[in-house]
Computed example of a mutant assay.
Amino acid sequence: MSIALSTLTLFVPAAALVAATPGANNLLSLGHGIRAGFVPTMIGVCGRLAAFAILVTLAAAGLGALLSASEIAFTILKWVGVAYLAYIGVKVWRSRTLTVAADTGGKTGLLLARKEFWVAMTNPKAMLLFTAFIPQFVDTSGPVAPQLFALGALYLVIEFAMAGGYALAGAMLRRFEMNPGRIRLMNRISGGMLLGAAGLLATSSHRA
């Protein structure tokens, strides 16, 4: 499905601004960059993209309308996400090492991917992104679902690039020589950001 150039010139910068917003997943990637480095963090971002791909499919199928219309469904999903983010934040805050897990390399990346996946899936704002933001760029005179898939796929590429910026920033902070005091500070920073993300999600309203 091809998208008109006029649509792309509007969609790409708008999507970049949305994707660059320091929301729950981006703050999670920043914290992961600090604790695990750039490559494992970017492997982890693939978990977020997998969740977003599912949400694009649900939005194209019309299921996202339920979340947009139901205050109860939005609230339940929101608080599940808040609890998960808070749990990760407290765990990181209290940690005495920078290691994310006992495993390294690919296994660490898969662990981070799982965290990214569930944070994205339990963030109702992510579903609203695909049911409220992206449809604004759809030409209703043509088939809607193919356009949603095409714009959703393009958004995933933009999301990956923006997440890379957060992961790189975290990895750069990680490169400072680590001693127990700095490790504790890094953990407090990354844990605090995750708790802050939980707070942002907790205060989000149903109407985006």
Rank of each mutant, 00 (worst) to 15 (best):
N25W: 09
N179C: 03
I43A: 05
V92L: 01
T75R: 07
A15S: 08
W93H: 09
A198N: 04
A167T: 02
G62E: 04
L28C: 04
V39E: 01
M162K: 11
R184Y: 10
I34E: 07
L156C: 13
L28Y: 11
L30H: 00
A167Y: 03
A169D: 06
V90H: 00
I54S: 06
F176A: 14
I88W: 01
G152P: 03
M127N: 05
A101I: 01
L185C: 05
Y155F: 15
R94A: 09
G196T: 06
T108K: 11
V92M: 02
P13Y: 02
K125C: 04
S190Y: 01
V18R: 13
R48V: 12
L49Q: 04
T21P: 11
P13C: 05
I134G: 06
A101M: 10
K91Y: 05
A197L: 05
I72N: 09
K78S: 07
M1F: 10
P143K: 10
P40H: 06
G62K: 00
I34T: 04
T122L: 14
R182Y: 11
A51W: 02
L98H: 01
F117W: 08
R207F: 13
L17C: 09
L112F: 12
A132S: 15
A145R: 11
S95Y: 07
A24E: 09
L148M: 13
L111E: 12
R182P: 11
G196W: 02
A15E: 01
K115F: 13
A61G: 14
N123P: 06
T21Q: 13
A69F: 10
A69R: 14
N179G: 13
G165H: 01
L55Y: 03
V56Q: 05
V157Y: 05
Y155L: 10
V138I: 15
L30G: 05
R174W: 04
F117G: 09
V39M: 06
L49R: 01
G164M: 04
R174F: 08
M42E: 08
M186P: 02
S190L: 01
P180D: 08
V56M: 07
F160R: 04
A153H: 08
